[in-house]
Simulated scan of single mutants.
Amino acid sequence: MSARHPFDLTGKRAIITGSSKGIGRAIAMTMADLGAKVVISSRKREACEPVAQEISERGGEAIVLPCNISRREEVTALIAGTVEAYGGIDILVCNAAVNPYYGPLAEIDDGAFDKVMNSNVRSNLWLCRDAQPHLAKNGGAVVIISSIAGLRASDNIGAYGISKAADFALARQLGAEWGPQNIRVNCIAPGLIRTDFARALWEDPQRRSLREETTPLRRIGDPEDISGVAAFLASPAAAFMTGTVVTVDGGVTIA
């Protein structure tokens, strides 16, 4: 390990999907603050531009490469565009995900189930496979943003939970396969975080109050509660970690 501090990301080239807002945006900001050159990516360029602009104003370096992760050709273009702009890839954060259905599994239609699995699992495999040759050159890191929904059952987001449990398995499998190339693959399992994506779960006062009361730290999370953990997993400080799931949920799954 180098003499620089173990959380330094200076010069590292990082792609963060779904980084126009929420957890992805926070991860991009934190990694840029730690010295990484970041790629801001989501479906629409206009949503990404303000994030890249803010990073630049804070003295960091960022570019925008739009990508709908459910489209194979756009995933390929995202990886190729990053390599063209930065000369390689050191960090891949698979953060973008969808959840088009709330309700019991017995009532989900095939289209909705396929959308969840394709966007939340298959697209992550696409991203990882396309990035793998570039990550292998310098010993890179993949961070998959999963969810505690993959750790326990739910009465309304079961399909999403299945996809997130599959992401745990994806990290373990790729961690084992790619470890000899010095590529590390880890997962984060956030609890309830104050994002637009999870708004239906925290905006209702009664539901939120119940969650806070049953969470040891007595609050829901903020995106910044996840971003530091993602930066840690991508940094030299986590150089001996791969295939792991780091739970960041205020203690809700232990209560």
Rank of each mutant, 00 (worst) to 15 (best):
R207M: 15
A198W: 00
I254H: 13
N68T: 11
A200H: 14
G111F: 02
V51T: 01
L170T: 13
L151F: 00
P104A: 07
P205R: 14
V39D: 11
N99R: 08
G59D: 10
I40H: 06
C67R: 08
G81R: 06
G111C: 04
V229R: 03
A237I: 08
F168P: 00
A159N: 12
L151G: 05
E107L: 02
T253E: 03
I220H: 05
D155K: 06
P66F: 11
A52R: 03
N186M: 07
V98A: 11
I254Q: 13
L201W: 02
K115L: 12
A171D: 03
V51M: 00
I108G: 13
N99V: 03
S209A: 15
S70R: 06
I79E: 12
G221R: 14
A237G: 14
I145Q: 09
V51S: 08
L151I: 08
A28D: 14
G250A: 05
L170A: 07
S20Q: 01
V39C: 02
V83L: 11
R72C: 04
P236N: 14
A136G: 00
D130G: 09
L92K: 01
S2I: 15
D110C: 12
I23K: 11
I27P: 02
M117H: 10
F168A: 00
M31F: 03
R208S: 11
T10L: 02
G59F: 07
T242V: 02
R13W: 05
G251C: 03
D130V: 13
D33M: 03
D225E: 12
P205E: 11
R211D: 01
P190N: 05
L192V: 15
T76I: 07
W126K: 03
I157S: 14
C48I: 06
S209P: 03
M29I: 10
G150L: 09
L192I: 15
Y86Q: 13
V64H: 10
L135R: 06
S146C: 03
E203L: 12
G221Y: 15
R129T: 06
L201V: 06
R184W: 09
A80E: 14
P6G: 15
A36S: 05
S42I: 00
K37P: 02
E49A: 02
L125D: 00
A32D: 10
E61S: 13
S2Q: 15
R72H: 08
S147I: 05
A85G: 01
P236V: 04
F7H: 03
Q173N: 06
T242L: 02
I108N: 15
A77H: 14
V252S: 01
R43Y: 08
V143R: 06
S56K: 11
G88D: 12
A26Y: 07
I69E: 10
K12I: 09
A85E: 02
S146I: 01
A131W: 07
I69A: 05
D204F: 00
S123T: 00
M117D: 04
S20P: 04
S163M: 08
V116C: 14
E213F: 11
V116Q: 10
T30C: 07
N124T: 09
L127N: 08
R43M: 06
N182R: 13
I254D: 12
I226T: 05
D110S: 15
V245W: 12
G24E: 12
G158F: 01
V93T: 12
A166T: 04
R194I: 02
P6F: 14
